[in-house]
Amino acid sequence: MQRTPVNVAIDLGALGLDTIEETSEEFSIGAMVTLRQLEQHEGLNSYSDNAIKTAVQDIIGVQFRNMATIGGSIWGRFGFSDILTVFLAMDTYVELYKGGVISLREFSGMKYDNDILVRIIVKKKPCKVIYDAMRIQRTDYPVITCALSCIDGSYRAVIGARPGKAVVVEDTGILSEGITEDSAEAFASYVASNVRTSTNMRGSAAYRKHLIKGLTARNIMRIGGQI
């Protein structure tokens, strides 16, 4: 935390939003749940094939993850966010105090307003998820985040740290004939050509394109059980 003056800060810590509730249909994650809780939650990680743990465990350190909340990460809709990336790969919704329940994908595209994020809801659809991120140093911001999932039979790629915020690319049928090296390559090229990248200190736009293509192809093969 920089030593900058704080004008008004309101503590939302006492509203009881710090638990993860699991039912047969969904996970309901309070906005004040910490990243460390996500990392350690058995139900969430068993549902996500440990993708959530993988997405979270390189974020700075245990102490930081004990303080940072899912609400902060999702609300911020930060470009570098591992959290936004991995939750966009699942059938995820946000509950807003005023705005009600909307899909995370819709929320991620909205402008910042004065609403309050109450909880994140993950529907337990049949789902396979793989999370991957490229980091120059293990606890650094990612150069690219790349999640792949298959929800109810349809594939999607989520690419973040472009360095812009994570975007979803759905399969348009490239993988409908099954996952082969060729279809994986074709899907990866499709994803790479549909995601805009740019340059910052951690990597150039061209390198990010290259990463998107390479990681998507590799991870699609992993999801298909070919690697």
Partner: peptide
């Protein structure tokens, strides 16, 4: 060799001005 970089921009500003940007090994 692998992670600590030093970048000076066209105005002479050093960009790796914190441990967030200057990444020593963990």
């Amino acid at each position: 060799t692998l992670m600590e970089n030093v970048t000076i921009n066209s105005k002479g500003k050093l960009l790796e001005n914190s441990l967030m940007q200057y990444r020593i090994p963990t």
